[in-house]
Amino acid sequence: MNRISRKTLTEILTILKDSYLKPDTKLNFLDFDNPFQILVMTVLSAQTTDNNVNKVKPQLFSRYPDCKALATADQEDVEEIIRSTGFYHAKAKNIIAASKMLRDDFNSEVPGTIEELTKLPGVGRKTANIVLSHAYNINEGIAVDTHVKRLAGRLGMTKSSDPVIIERDLMELVPKEEWGLINFLLISHGRNVCDARKPLCDECKLKGLCREYKTGKLQ
């Protein structure tokens, strides 16, 4: 079965914008102040909630405010600060190593391309897309997390379960100026309505446009 049409996509986006975009809406879920913070916090957000990462932010960046400070940090000290985010050994190792690379190879600046960002330890394409979109307002791709993967499939935006292919399918379907926005909208709907195990289909404003609902897979 083919993917949904651009007309259907436009209808979906209109409904999601009406539901989740308000005049004071922040299009990011991490409470960052600069590119370095969003980079580190996005690495820390793997396998945990954004709220958990936001909670460790004050202590982490008061002690290590920039890449030069974090590059020389004691790993055990960093681990203790970020322990509540899970996988703290690997995360601490990665953010310290990434900070060293920023200091040594990028003049202590967070780079502004996918290719450069993904050279940093712990930074994959999803993280790079989030950093570019939120820190620099650059759309080079679409960050595919678990919510985006689930909703893109249910709504018929892709037939794949591979994040790389899902990203490609979404990039072909969604206008480039809305690549950053689609991530926010799908995550918001995934958290509020389209749960992985118990989607609230009766309350969902998209059920008339949802491929899996219409084919009975979610009923």
Results as ranks from 00 to 15, higher is better:
Lys7Tyr: 11
Pro111Thr: 05
Pro121Ser: 13
Val78Ser: 00
Ala128Ser: 13
Pro23Ile: 06
Asn129Trp: 00
Glu109Phe: 05
Thr48Lys: 08
Asn183Arg: 03
Asn192Tyr: 06
Val148Leu: 10
Lys17Trp: 01
Ala196Arg: 15
Asp195Glu: 13
Asn54Leu: 07
Glu177Gly: 04
Met1Glu: 13
Cys201Pro: 06
Lys149Ser: 14
Asp162Leu: 07
Asp169Ser: 12
Asp66Tyr: 07
Val174Glu: 00
Ile12His: 02
Ser160Asn: 11
Ala71Ile: 14
Ser108Leu: 09
Thr118His: 01
Ile82Asp: 00
Glu203Val: 03
Pro65Phe: 02
Leu206His: 08
Asp33Asn: 15
Ala92Cys: 07
Ala143Met: 05
Tyr213Arg: 10
Ala152Asp: 04
Cys194Lys: 03
Ala128Leu: 01
Gly86Thr: 13
Ser133Tyr: 04
Cys67Thr: 06
Met101Pro: 01
Phe87Cys: 06
Ile182Cys: 05
Asp18Gln: 15
Lys176Ser: 06
Lys22Leu: 15
Gly153Ala: 05
Asn107Gly: 10
Ile15Phe: 07
Gly208Val: 04
Gln37Lys: 13
Lys149Arg: 15
Arg168Ile: 01
Leu200Thr: 08
Ile114Pro: 01
Thr85Pro: 03
Thr85Tyr: 03
Ser188Asp: 03
Lys149Leu: 15
Arg3Gly: 09
Ser99Trp: 00
Thr118Leu: 04
Asp195Val: 08
Leu151Cys: 08
Glu167His: 13
Lys7Asp: 13
Leu173Ala: 08
Asp195Asn: 15
Ile96Leu: 05
Val193Asn: 06
Ala143Ile: 05
Tyr88Glu: 03
Asn51Pro: 00
Tyr136Met: 10
Cys204Arg: 12
Leu44Ala: 06
Arg83Trp: 08
Ala69Gln: 14
Gly180Lys: 07
Thr25Lys: 15
Glu109Asn: 14
Ile96Ser: 02
Asn139Val: 05
Phe29Ser: 11
Asp66Gly: 08
Cys210Thr: 12
Asp145Ala: 14
Lys205Leu: 14
Leu209Lys: 13
Val144Phe: 07
Trp179Lys: 10
Leu9Cys: 09
Arg197Ala: 14
Leu206Ala: 08
His134Pro: 00
Asp105Thr: 12
Leu16Val: 11
Arg211Gly: 01
Phe36Pro: 00
Ser133Phe: 06
Asp18His: 14
Ile15Ser: 02
Val53Phe: 04
Phe61Met: 10
Ile4Glu: 04
Asp202Ile: 05
Lys176Pro: 01
Lys91Phe: 08
Leu102Pro: 01
Pro121Tyr: 08
Asn34His: 10
Gly122Gln: 02
Pro111Val: 05
Met1Val: 13
Ala90Trp: 03
Phe106Trp: 08
Phe32Leu: 01
Arg125Cys: 04
Lys93Tyr: 03
Phe106Gln: 06
Pro23Ser: 12
Leu21Gly: 07
Pro175Arg: 13
Val164Gly: 07
